[in-house]
């Protein structure tokens, strides 16, 4: 402890890897230009509203409903994606079958497809007169033009995030760990639930966070399938666009600011859980 007071505090530890100054400079400049300036502009605009105005706009009933729908559907979609994304990644990593490469490539399609196209395609399928919708309609299940439709669209756009984050981690699972579980008497189900899945948790969380973040911000595919009924199936990004078209900039920025704060908080929490599990179990170290 005494020696510590003698050593000068350093901004960075000495390292043999060169280019720290340059790399950090580029990183910070880039972040400021691309991320920080637009976001601070947003906060600057909404701070001009004054506190009571901001509260009134942000906690307007229609806004609250839109936020609830956006975050609710994004959460459900991310959970669905987590489950099926892990299954899909498992199939791609563990089995060899004809057409595997094609399926592997198909996973990335939602990345590439214009979201509006996806939205229209899904709407056509799930509308009451569509292929799938017409099968569900007699059962009294409506997908298109309800929040369920939003979830379907968000599942579509979020799928690659989970698969692509879980897949590499799954590939690295040591066969010996599974064999060890088997020699200790664990059956297949126990091996998967007690040994393999906990090991995938950090990667799964990352995928979940990415899919969720994408879902909250998604606009293009959702507006076609959602039906956009205020208080029922109107998402927050759409409400922002509506406010903009009404030239109601203060309301638009207020909604955006609330979304931003909520998203940031949730992502931060997920990140902290990941960092904690990494520290604890030594994953990825």
């Amino acid at each position: 402890m005494a020696s510590r007071s003698h050593t000068r505090w350093r901004f960075r530890q000495p390292s043999v890897i060169p280019g720290f100054g340059l790399a950090l400079g580029v990183t910070l400049t880039w972040l400021v230009l691309i991320v920080l300036i637009p976001i601070s502009g947003l906060f600057w605009r909404s701070s001009g509203l004054g506190w009571s105005n901001f509260i009134a706009l942000a906690f307007d009933e229609r806004t609250l409903n839109a936020l609830a729908i956006s975050f609710g559907t994004a959460t459900i979609a991310a959970i669905v994606n987590l489950v099926f994304g892990v299954v899909l990644a498992w199939v791609l990593v563990r089995y060899r079958f004809p057409g595997k490469r094609v399926i592997d490539a198909m996973v990335d399609l939602p990345f590439a497809l214009p979201t509006a196209v996806a939205g229209i395609a899904l709407t056509t399928l799930y509308a009451p007169n569509g292929w799938i919708g017409s099968l569900l309609d007699p059962l009294g299940i409506k997908i298109a033009f309800t929040p369920a439709g939003i979830v379907v669209a968000l599942v579509f756009v979020g799928l690659p995030f989970v698969v692509r984050t879980v897949q590499p981690v799954m590939e690295e699972i040591d066969r010996e760990v599974e064999e060890a579980a088997a020699t200790l008497g664990a059956n297949r189900f126990q091996t998967i639930t007690r040994v393999l899945l906990p090991g995938l948790l950090p990667a799964g969380l990352t995928g979940f966070a990415l899919a969720f973040a994408r879902g909250v911000g998604e606009y293009g595919s959702v507006i076609f399938i959602a039906g956009n009924l205020p208080y029922v199936s109107e998402i927050a990004p759409l409400l922002i666009v509506i406010r903009l078209e009404e030239f109601n900039y203060p309301a638009a920025t207020a909604i955006a600011a609330v979304m931003l704060i909520l998203s940031f908080t949730m992502l931060l929490v997920i990140n902290m859980i990941q960092a904690w599990s990494r520290r604890r179990y030594g994953y990825g170290s």
Binding site: D174, E176, V177, E179, A180, A181, T183, G185, V195, P198, G199, L201, S277, R280, Y281, G282, Y283
Partner: peptide, 14 residues
């Protein structure tokens, strides 16, 4: 019902 010890331990990390 055997006990098997692997070269690289194969412990459950979590």
């Amino acid at each position: 019902n055997i006990g098997f010890v692997f070269q690289h331990y194969a412990l459950f990390r979590h």
